[in-house]
């Protein structure tokens, strides 16, 4: 549904996005992660045919960007960084306007359906200026979905929402995935990306890494085992000396050991530790979060940059 090859955009001498290649397939949610200024919004703008790439190619819904921008815009739903709603107009009026621009059939029923889903129906005739930030965000999301796009580009969909609303929006996005849409999600919310997304694209002007959250964790941290000890000592680390333990680090009472295959390596590790006089309380796999991956990779990019 979305495919980019060496996508690059320069603004004068400033490179916003460079040589970006990734893919979002049907029924998939892909997170575009990166710090501010990493090129996420520029990428979304290129994919929604708002700005043209300086070089590289991209296909959305089977059409190359420059081939038929109008078709691409008609089949893509965009949630922009800021809600971008007409504040003097009501929620109903805002949606009606965009429904007309997209040529939505049965617009009134669709508008009612989305306003009810997002809990805005009772306030449909009030000016958007009187809405809370969360209500505006929901309305902007409704606007992005109104024309039933097959491709969704969502920039920070839960920003500014209270936890309950954020959760309902996340659940809704998950449902959308089930409907066979391709969703590109720009977010700073790493737990959200981990929970929602099938794959992650880490971007800092250039592509830093991409893969499923599990792949990225394994690639960076391997499989780590935590051994809780009653008698931790630095000698345990220095005397370990088995090939199954690729690295070891003692943090407080916990010994973190990187292994290749836990089923094969853990018994050898436990046996060796007992031989060394370790009193083991528990052995479990270490939890690595997407946040760990992000900081590791972005830190690495910093060091290279």
């Amino acid at each position: 549904m979305i495919r980019t090859e060496g996508l690059t955009r320069r603004f004068g001498g400033v490179v916003a996005v460079e040589d970006l290649s990734f893919e979002v397939r049907t029924g998939e949610i892909v997170a575009l992660l990166g710090p501010n200024g990493a090129g996420k919004t520029t990428t979304v703008r290129m994919l929604s045919c708002l700005i043209a790439p300086t070089s590289g190619r991209a296909w959305v819904n089977g059409r190359e960007l420059h081939e038929d921008p109008s078709y691409i815009r008609a089949t893509v739903g965009v949630l922009t960084e800021t809600p971008g709603l007409y504040r003097r107009l009501s929620a109903w009026h805002n949606l009606r306007f965009f429904a007309d621009l997209y040529g939505v059939r049965g617009a009134e029923e669709k508008i009612e359906e989305y306003l009810r889903f997002f809990g805005l129906w009772e306030r449909r005739n009030d000016p958007v200026a009187t809405y809370s930030k969360g209500m505006r965000q929901k309305l902007a999301l409704a606007r992005a979905l109104l024309h039933e796009p097959k491709v969704l580009l969502l920039d920070e969909p839960t920003a500014g929402l209270d936890p309950e609303s954020a959760r309902s929006v996340r659940e809704f996005i998950s449902e959308l995935k089930g409907e066979g849409r391709a969703i590109l999600l720009c977010t700073h919310n790493l737990p959200e990306a981990e929970r929602l997304c099938d794959r992650i694209v880490l971007l800092r002007t250039r592509l830093i890494a991409q893969g499923t959250p599990e792949e990225l964790k394994r690639r960076l941290f391997g499989t780590r085992v935590v051994v809780e000890l009653a008698n931790p000592s630095p000698e345990l680390v220095s005397s370990l000396g088995i090939p199954e333990a690729r690295s070891a680090e003692l943090v407080g009472e916990k010994l973190y050991v990187e292994v290749t295959d836990p089923r094969r390596d853990n018994p050898v590790l436990v046996r060796r530790l007992v031989e060394l006089g370790a009193e083991i309380i528990a052995v479990r796999e270490a939890e690595t979060t997407l946040e760990d991956v992000y900081h590791e990779l972005m830190g690495g990019a910093d060091a290279q940059g």
Partner: peptide, 14 residues
């Protein structure tokens, strides 16, 4: 001023 240009321009309007 309202930040509405981007969503407007993202529609298929010519």
């Amino acid at each position: 001023e309202q930040g509405t240009l981007e969503p407007l321009l993202a529609t298929p309007i010519r």
